[in-house]
């Protein structure tokens, strides 16, 4: 989920742009071009390894942080059926974080290092989770819009050139197929409900629509001031770590989501939205990139809270993790004796 918005920014020097003219690099690129998978211990350019570690770990962090806004409603779910669904869904997010950390660890980095980067703020996670879940309808909106956007982003990643990442994504996509459907079904029940329920649904939709579009990340089919087409994103395409541009995915998302919103009787909060018969796509209004940058920079409604909760959980759990290791060591010693 959610890696699209986490492209490497222009001017980031921590990940080298590879020249790719050594014999190994030429052979490596030939394997990629032939759609061969790269496996953990294979030779790979340093930039490829670093790009993957960053992308996979940010993806993992997003899953783990993403448990918070939805977990926020588990104890308050309105029915037992919805409660069980939400518990299973949030648990899946945790599982997906786990699969992804697992994939990143095959690249020679430990989970501890990755978690440290999250907790000290140096690693990013998807900004979408810095928005609050204020009503029950937000749970529907997240499942339908956020998971919907995520699935669109993730399906191409199932064909990513790095084997462990691709395999994790296949597993994740298979499991997530219910996430979007349960969200839409939740919205459907609100759309058939009372005036209060309908208002709750429209309010949630108004708040999640634009952040969902921002999930696909900055424009990347054009350069210039508002675009971010960079050497890094071109390189990621060439390496088949990333396979479809942000803008293409965003357009696809708008095209499939607008009719679904109409079916629910929702009004899309965009005065410029209109069907364009010439292009067979919806035209939509400009995205507020200032808001995007602001939330990315740490000023979203929940950035501080999300990290604080994660940090505290980690610290509170330290004695448990330590005790489990101490017990394992004692037991091993006793068995050896």
């Amino acid at each position: 989920m959610y890696t699209q918005g986490l492209d490497i920014p222009k001017g980031d020097k921590s990940i080298p742009v590879e020249q790719g003219d050594s014999p190994e690099a030429v052979r490596f690129q030939a394997r990629i071009d032939a759609d061969e998978k790269i496996e953990p211990k294979d030779w790979m350019p340093e930039g490829y390894r670093k790009t993957l570690i960053r992308q996979i770990s940010q993806h993992a962090h997003s899953e783990v942080i993403g448990m918070q806004p939805e977990g926020n409603w588990i104890t308050r779910a309105p029915t037992l059926r919805r409660k069980a669904i939400l518990m299973a869904k949030v648990q899946d997010e945790g599982g997906h974080g786990l699969y992804l950390y697992s994939a990143a660890e095959t690249l020679g980095v430990s989970r501890d290092e990755l978690v440290d980067q999250l907790l000290d703020g140096s690693a990013k996670y998807s900004s979408i989770f810095n928005y609050p879940t204020l009503t029950w309808a937000d749970i529907g909106a997240i499942g339908w819009l956020v998971d919907g956007a995520a699935i669109m982003n993730q399906i191409p990643l199932c064909r990513c050139s790095y084997g462990p990442y691709a395999r994790a994504m296949i597993r994740i996509c298979k499991e997530e197929s219910f996430h979007q459907r349960q969200g839409y079904e939740l919205m459907l029940s609100l759309s058939r409900g009372t005036a209060e329920q309908k208002a709750m649904m429209q309010d949630a939709f108004d708040r999640w629509w634009w952040p969902a579009l921002m999930m696909f990340g900055p424009h990347d089919t054009k350069g210039g001031a508002e675009g971010m087409k960079s050497q890094h994103s071109e390189q990621s395409m060439k390496w088949r770590i990333k396979r479809v541009s942000n803008d293409e995915l965003r357009q696809k998302f708008v095209d499939v989501t607008v009719p679904q919103a109409e079916y629910l009787g929702l009004k899309v909060p965009d005065p410029y939205l209109k069907w364009n018969a010439a292009t067979s796509h919806y035209d939509f209004g400009p995205i507020d990139w200032d808001e995007f940058k602001n939330v990315l920079a740490g000023n979203g409604p929940c950035n501080k809270k999300r990290l604080k909760v994660r940090r505290e959980a980690h610290e509170r759990g330290a004695w448990v993790r330590e005790a489990a290791m101490a017990y394992a060591a004692k037991k091993a010693k006793r068995q050896a004796a």
């Binding site: 783990v64 448990m67 518990m87 945790g94 950390y101 909760v309 759990g317 448990v320 993790r321």
Partner: peptide
């Protein structure tokens, strides 16, 4: 369920939810 996203380790989060 109150342990959601609060367990000592990610694996245990999943176990408690199960």
């Amino acid at each position: 369920a109150e342990w959601c996203a609060d367990a000592p380790e990610l694996e245990e989060d999943m176990a408690l939810m199960n």
